[in-house]
Each structure stands twice: as structure tokens, then as C-alpha cells.
Simulated scan of single mutants.
Amino acid sequence: MNGFVEQHAEQVRLAAERIHGRVRRTPTLTTDLDAEVRLKPECFQVTGSFKPRGAFNAILSLVARGDRPPGVIAVSSGNHAQAVALAASTVGLPALILIPEDANPAKVAATRALGAEVIQEGITFANREQRLREVMAERGFVLVHPFDDWDVIHGQGTAVRFLLHESVSVSVIAGLIVILAGILLVNLRRVPRRETAVERDSAAA
């Protein structure tokens, strides 16, 4: 386990260097509810969520390896879509996003405004994975998965890296599973102990 944690915590460190200047260092806030609770408001991040951390790390890593595909592709209802669109445009790669027809129109518009091609017609939550495979085969685009991708996980872990540098002890973490995975890798390396991750029971992941 120690070797596993060390390996991936180091990748989070490298991810922080890689995405430096591409994402914001969001503030750490306290709350009147509990003096020991710290909030990391990633709503202040570019595109309004933590997702650009993972998208930038994945796409910049892809380019750094010399793998420059015809484009990148993702499936998302909004936040990951915007993150991939932004990161891809930064390095000059076309981005194609499959977004379900019932997605938030504002997020769809924002994704298009960031330069991505969006396919919505006929896309549902149930069939989007199948359509994804079909479009990937047609165009040869590389998938940037929203959570099942180590480069994405390492990028999301950078959210807590600065928090820990501020001497904040983290033992209970609440958030989406992909950011929790990255955070736990960093925190376990710093303080080897049992961690508790909390996610709402309605979360898709």
C-alpha cells in the first residue's frame, strides 16, 4: 500500500506542476458551524468546478507523451464537458462532447462557447456509452474519462495539495468520488491513517 500511495502521490505533485497557471488556486474557507471544518470552494475554479484540474492534467499529459490524436472526446452533462473543451482548446486539439438531450442548456452553451463540438441529438444517459464507442471508432478521438482515468484522478488531487501545505489536518472528506480518490492519495502519503470519504447517495459515480 505504501508503494502504491507514494507512486500516485508523486503523480499528483507532478500534476500540480503541469497544470500550474492553467487553473486557479482556490481559497480555503472556515465556517461558523465548526471551527475544525474547512471548505475548498472549487466553484471559484475556472468553468465553476474542480473538473479542469483533471481535464488539464489528462490532456497536457497526453500531448507531453507525444500522443497527439485527431481530437479528444468526452461524455458529460456539463462540468466535465466544459473542462475538456477548455483544456483541449488551450493546446489546439478539437474536442467533441456527447451531452444528453436533457442537460442544462446553459452548460451546453458554455461548452460550445469554449470551442467544443457538441452532439446532443439522440443522446440519453442510457445510450451515451454506446454512442461514445461508435463516435470514437469513426473519428479516432481519444477519450478523456470523467473519473476512470489516472491522469484525471491525479489532477483532481491537486485541489487538496495546497490545503495540506497550509497545515490543515484532513480526516473526513466530502465530495464527488473522483476528487476524493485524488485527495486520499495525497493525504495518506502525508499522514498514514484511516480516512473517511463521504459522498451523497444519489451521486452517479
Rank of each mutant, 00 (worst) to 15 (best):
N2F: 09
N2K: 14
F4H: 07
F4L: 12
V5F: 07
V5H: 08
A9Y: 03
E10G: 04
E10W: 03
Q11V: 07
R13E: 15
R13H: 10
R13L: 13
E17S: 13
R18M: 02
H20F: 10
V23Y: 06
V23R: 11
R24P: 00
R25V: 14
T30R: 14
T30C: 09
T31M: 10
L33E: 12
A35M: 04
R38I: 11
R38P: 02
K40P: 05
P41Y: 06
E42G: 12
E42Q: 12
F44W: 15
F44I: 03
V46D: 06
F50E: 06
N57H: 10
A58M: 00
L60T: 10
S61F: 00
V63K: 10
A64Y: 02
A64E: 15
D67P: 00
R68I: 15
G71I: 06
G78K: 09
A81G: 14
V84E: 01
A85I: 06
L86M: 14
A87D: 00
A88Y: 00
S89M: 00
T90D: 06
T90S: 08
G92W: 02
P94S: 04
L98G: 05
P100I: 10
E101W: 08
A103E: 07
K107V: 07
K107G: 10
V108A: 04
A109I: 05
R112A: 14
A113T: 05
A116Y: 08
E117N: 02
I119K: 03
E121K: 14
E121W: 05
I123H: 05
I123Y: 12
F125V: 14
A126F: 12
R131S: 02
L132W: 14
R133I: 11
R133E: 15
R133W: 07
V135E: 12
M136Q: 13
A137H: 14
E138H: 11
R139H: 11
G140Y: 05
G140A: 07
G140P: 06
P146H: 03
D149M: 05
W150I: 06
V152N: 01
I153E: 00
I153M: 00
G155W: 02
G155K: 07
G155D: 04
Q156K: 00
G157H: 05
G157M: 03
T158M: 08
T158N: 07
T158E: 05
T158V: 12
V160A: 03
L163R: 08
E166A: 15
S167C: 13
V168F: 09
V168K: 01
S169E: 15
S169M: 12
S169N: 09
V170N: 04
I173M: 14
A174H: 13
G175C: 05
G175S: 10
L176F: 03
I179S: 14
I179D: 01
A181W: 01
G182W: 03
L184C: 13
L185G: 00
V186Y: 01
L188D: 03
R193Y: 04
R193D: 12
R194A: 12
E195F: 05
T196S: 09
T196V: 15
T196N: 03
E199K: 09
S202P: 01
A204N: 13
A204W: 14
A205S: 13
